[in-house]
């Protein structure tokens, strides 16, 4: 079968990869680009472990064809930290023990980052609804919600320079 050549920007860098017409973007990220942070929990849009940002909006990369990414801008969990400096969300997830097995964590981090970009001061209800598409088998969610609330406060403080 004819492979499709896709050029795209991933975490700020331009990349090219080849894919089959029906390869998912998740598979292309993991196997072609070796970005294995994004996980496949279900492959059907239900669990959110594969969450990435596509042109600034969070989507399930298992439900995107890799070929659709031509010319688009992608953000994955690998792009959240700046070098070795963890993002406040990552720091707070660690502090609050907001992960156990960690399989869901990349998806939660990308989704929470997207929330805080749009809404720097979300209520608990807003956080829970925003993260309704991310499933976690281990933590019971409360620790994740606390971590997001604290990271939101950190980011607000950073922004005001206080």
């Amino acid at each position: 079968m004819q492979k499709i050549l896709v050029s795209t920007t991933v975490n700020g860098e331009t990349c090219e990869f080849a894919c089959e017409p029906d390869t998912s973007l998740l598979d292309a990220l993991r196997t072609e680009l070796r970005l294995t942070g994004s996980k496949e929990g279900c492959g059907s849009g239900d669990c959110g472990a594969c969450t990435i940002s596509l042109d600034g909006e969070m989507v399930c990369s298992c439900l995107v064809l890799a070929a659709e990414a031509q010319g688009r801008t992608i953000g994955t969990v690998e792009g959240i930290a700046e070098g070795s400096a963890l993002h406040p969300l990552q720091t707070r997830f660690l502090e609050h023990a907001a992960l156990q097995c960690g399989f869901c964590t990349p998806g939660f981090l990308v989704a929470a980052k997207s929330l805080l970009e749009k809404n720097p001061d979300p209520t608990e209800t807003e956080i829970r609804y925003w993260l309704a598409g991310n499933l976690c088998r281990c933590t019971g969610y409360d620790k994740i919600i606390r971590a997001v609330q604290h990271a939101a406060a950190d980011l607000r403080q950073e922004r005001t320079g206080a």
Binding site: G45, G48, T51, L54, E57, M58, V59, C60, L63, V64, A111, S114, W130, A132, G133, N134
Partner: peptide
């Protein structure tokens, strides 16, 4: 419909 991830598509 679905989650925010789903509705963005």
């Amino acid at each position: 419909i679905g989650s925010v991830q789903v509705r963005n598509r």
